[in-house]
């Protein structure tokens, strides 16, 4: 049987690759593989820090050529204004083919998280919008910025994650995925979600943003912001559906740890107004990043349920 001879330590090159170089090389290989094997790939661009890193990696993968696929932003209609202006400026500056998709029908019917509950609202404005958007353009592969360290069901996801004709994930029957040999074969109507950041941690993402000088939405940086202060929670006033009680609205030095929809994303008190300070805060915090997203607390395993239904 094949076995590998032990390494000759003396012959090893002095220049080892760092973990970030290894992760970058792996992600670039994934981008190139998808762009070559699929007819109509797309990158789901959510404006957040992970999407920002994905975008830089895509630029690197096809340099000096352009990124050979469009970006799709699934806009729930409840994104912070700073996110939308950041997105539009970046698309112009980098000359990106950016498409925006919204569930206009649901928005016209007045869908919002208070009337529908977080679960149903996400279902309509995120999951349904995403599936409709992908179907409308006929995309057969979609890059997403999810990482395995984010959440327990994501920890099990393949890099090439197969979706059936209804866009759904079957976690009990995933394709084996060996080495870096990805099986890109699908039947018409099926698709693959691709996660090039699977093996990156939150700390890796921030460190890479720092080293690469990657632009991110200013909402990540602490500054005085108008917040409804309720118990431990800071609820941004912008587009809030929460009615503030007298004295609850205050200017607080705060920032967002992850960018969701304005009605459902809590802020944190923070002085971190630079990336090194954000990293310092992260390593001393010891609380996983999705905890300040209201959506995950609905029910045990809620992320897995959403993913089965087609959410990222």
């Amino acid at each position: 049987m094949p076995t590998l001879a032990p390494p000759d330590i003396a012959a090893l090159p002095a220049s080892r690759l760092s973990h970030l170089q290894l992760l970058e090389a792996e992600s670039i290989q994934i981008f190139r593989e998808v762009a070559s094997e699929f007819q109509k790939p797309v990158m789901l661009y959510s404006i957040g820090k992970d999407s920002s890193v994905m975008l830089r990696l895509a630029q690197k993968a096809f340099y000096p050529g352009p990124i050979p696929f469009p970006l799709l932003h699934v806009d729930t209609g409840y994104k912070f204004n700073e996110m939308i202006s950041f997105r539009d400026n970046l698309a112009k500056e980098l000359n990106l083919d950016l498409r925006v998709w919204r569930n206009e029908q649901a928005l016209a019917d007045g869908a919002n998280p208070v009337a529908l509950g977080t679960q149903r609202c996400c279902g309509l404005l995120k999951t349904t919008a995403l599936l409709d958007g992908l179907r409308n353009y006929g995309f057969d592969a979609a890059f997403g910025g999810a990482r395995r360290d984010e959440e327990k069901s994501r920890a099990k996801e393949r890099i090439f994650s197969f979706r059936d004709k209804a866009g759904q994930w079957d976690p009990k029957n995933q394709r084996p995925e060996l080495w870096n040999l990805y099986n890109a074969r699908i039947a018409p109507g099926e698709s693959i979600r691709v996660f090039p950041l699977s093996n990156w941690t939150e700390l890796d993402i921030w460190h890479y943003i720092l080293l690469e000088n990657i632009p991110i939405v200013p909402l990540y940086f602490a500054k005085e912001r108008e917040m409804i202060v309720r118990g431990d929670s800071l609820i941004p006033v912008e587009q809030s559906f929460v009615k503030s009680l007298p004295g609850e609205v205050q200017w607080i030095k705060s920032r967002l740890r992850s960018l969701g929809c304005s009605p459902c994303t809590g802020a944190i008190r923070s002085d971190a107004d630079t990336i090194p300070k954000i990293i310092a805060e992260l390593v001393s915090f010891r609380s996983s990043e999705r905890a300040n997203r209201v959506i995950d607390h609905d029910q045990d395993g809620s992320m897995e349920i959403k993913k089965r239904e087609g959410y990222f």
């Binding site: 080892r16 760092s18 973990h19 700390l203 460190h207 090194p276 300070k277 990293i279 310092a280 390593v283």
Partner: peptide
């Protein structure tokens, strides 16, 4: 803790 030192060490990790 000293963030600069931390990031330097972080960058050396394999």
């Amino acid at each position: 803790f000293a963030i600069e030192e931390f990031l330097h060490a972080e960058q050396q990790k394999d």
